[in-house]
Design a protein around this nucleic acid. Sequence first.
DNA 1: GAATTTCGTAACTGACCGGTTACTTCCCCG
DNA 2: CGGGGAAGTAACCGGTCAGTTACGAAATTC
Lengths: 216, 216
Amino acid sequence: MTKSKSAKPTQKKSRQPDVTRRNILDAALYEFAAKGLAGARVDEIAARSGSNKRMIYEYFGNKEGLWLTVLENAYTRMREEEHAIDVARMKPEDGMRYLMEFNFKFCSRNPEFIALLNAENLHKASYLKDSKKIRELYTPLLVVITDLLQRGQKDGVFRKGVDPVELYTTIAALGFFYFSNIHTLSTIFGRNLLSPKQQKTRLDHSMEVVLGYLRP
Amino acid sequence: MTKSKSAKPTQKKSRQPDVTRRNILDAALYEFAAKGLAGARVDEIAARSGSNKRMIYEYFGNKEGLWLTVLENAYTRMREEEHAIDVARMKPEDGMRYLMEFNFKFCSRNPEFIALLNAENLHKASYLKDSKKIRELYTPLLVVITDLLQRGQKDGVFRKGVDPVELYTTIAALGFFYFSNIHTLSTIFGRNLLSPKQQKTRLDHSMEVVLGYLRP
DNA sequence: GAATTTCGTAACTGACCGGTTACTTCCCCG
DNA sequence: CGGGGAAGTAACCGGTCAGTTACGAAATTC
């Protein structure tokens, strides 16, 4: 619909649908991540976005439509970042380390992503299930892991018979869980797990666990 | 306050504070787990409990007080179940397997527990932080793990220098994450991870990862 | 520069929801 | 058996919230 105005440098105000849309999505990510779907307030999102409710309903239909878009966006961004570096060219062990480190640091850097996924799981992924974009997003990642495993096996540095899906789940678990449950864990253990030092300890341990497992 | 009537067998109706309280807590667990704190409806909890709103506010003060009580209850129940079997007497490897299996199966058996913890983490554990009961709940578990590690080390079946907190976090992660994200993972991988077969595969893999890591 | 489309504002609506209260019913104790 | 307190009911209240609408302002198009 409105597409033809990307060359303009800086307009003072309004009539920038893409920018408005982006602002709404950013504000919604913040609000949804902080309060979940039910807890989030559309008025608050509108205020924070610098736009208004009318625009939200124009672009996204309703609160749930906005939720789904925010969710898809978050997933997409993660996969895009992950693909920025070419793991296929790395040595198997390095590639695996890179994947783990990326996963861990991405979770550390994007607490909203964590919150969003948890909230969506609370809803039994009912919104995600309707998404066409998502399913195909993970196929290339599995291809990369399968390739790493095969090459590592051939080089004799990885054991045989490792299921890529299981391995990916383990890698994701070790990164995701720590940040997903960081507040309750910090409370229980009486440690501040958000501190960089604790995070490093955790990542080192996780890597040792996975690579220890992978060695033949 | 009302304590002295536990010998009575079965009364037909009402005037059973403990039963009413329990019913409210059960209903609240169900509702909170299904919809989170913000999404849960006090009216719905009242209806489901067979009691009514007035009793909820009498026993628990407000929605948040009810939330905290439900949360403490869930934690307590898990630790109690875990302590039912005496790991201290088991061989180190068996003890570790038992802990992992318990953790995994408890998560499988109690999806509400998962949902509750995730919701509480969304609130940055702000309710749990005020709880006095919780912190002391996990000390004995860490003692058990430390003991297992030491004995395993002495027997030469476990490696040295393993931090009990890190190890427990890993064990918890491998069980919890799978069930916490089971809906989004099922969607992404196009598998039904709730099936017993997939669960067994997952548990076997997790054990291999941890025990592989622990071996010297 | 008028017509048309896009965007912004704010008031509005109707449903809902957490929490309260006035009142009734039941149980226990003397 | 009757009085008092505990337990239960349902109506109610004030506030909130998702979603709508009416209208005016600005920008784009011709």
